[in-house]
Simulated assay, not measured.
Amino acid sequence: MSQACIYCTKNEVLSNLMIEIGQMRVSTLFLFKEQTYKGRCIVALNEHHHEFFHLSQDMQDAYMRDVAQAAAAVERAFAPDKINYGAFGDTMPHVHFHIVPKYKDGHTWGKMFEMNPSDNKQLTEEEYGEIINQLKLHL
């Protein structure tokens, strides 16, 4: 565990950016509060590792099953035209994937998704709850 890692400390920085949806096999599924891309989630590994290839084969397999399960839930819940995946970590070196649904007439279609869109679309607690319920229904 890293004291600077928001996924490990589960501090206020994390709760300002995302809402925990639930535990998966080896990771935690979060709803990203910025919802320019409706249904955008993050699948964060429960153990602190900097790189995906540092994981054992069994852990890699289980984690990618979690990523696939989360993406499938997003597809069933919101019917995006495509799902983009982002695995960065320059400033937050903890294995995590962004699951970003893209829509043909939506923001940045045909381009890479924006990590922090300028519109910064925040929702009401009720709207976040509706999205989370749809995702849980389809997990």
Rank of each mutant, 00 (worst) to 15 (best):
N120H: 13
M92S: 13
G110I: 03
Y37N: 02
E127Q: 15
K121E: 13
L29Q: 02
Y37V: 10
H94C: 10
Q23S: 10
F113W: 05
E125C: 08
N11I: 10
S15A: 13
V100M: 03
A4G: 03
F88W: 06
G89S: 08
N120D: 11
C8D: 02
P93Q: 11
S2M: 12
R76L: 07
K38M: 08
H96K: 08
G110Y: 00
Y128A: 14
Y85S: 04
A62M: 13
G86E: 07
A68K: 11
H96A: 06
I83Q: 00
Y103F: 13
K111G: 07
E47A: 09
G106W: 04
G106D: 08
E51L: 12
E34Q: 11
I83C: 04
Y37H: 01
P93C: 04
I42F: 10
Q122K: 12
Q122V: 11
S56Y: 09
N84E: 01
Q3P: 14
D81E: 02
M1A: 14
G89R: 04
A44Y: 00
F113Y: 14
E75L: 06
K136V: 12
P101M: 11
H138Q: 15
V95N: 02
L55K: 06
L31W: 04
V95G: 05
A73M: 01
Y103D: 00
H96M: 03
E126H: 07
Q35G: 15
D81S: 04
F78P: 07
P117W: 03
S2Y: 04
F52H: 11
N11A: 11
N16Y: 06
L17A: 03
G22F: 05
M112L: 11
L17F: 02
A70G: 05
E130K: 13
M24W: 05
R65Y: 10
Q23E: 13
K38Y: 03
Y128L: 13
S2V: 06
F53I: 10
F53K: 07
D58N: 12
E47S: 06
A77I: 12
K38R: 14
Y7M: 08
K33H: 15
T124Y: 12
F113N: 00
Y85H: 01
V74Y: 01
E12P: 01
S27Q: 04
I19S: 02
I83G: 02
Q23N: 11
A71K: 12
A77Y: 09
E114Y: 04
Q3D: 12
M112E: 12
Q69Y: 05
H138E: 15
I19D: 02
R76V: 05
T28E: 02
T28R: 14
C41M: 09
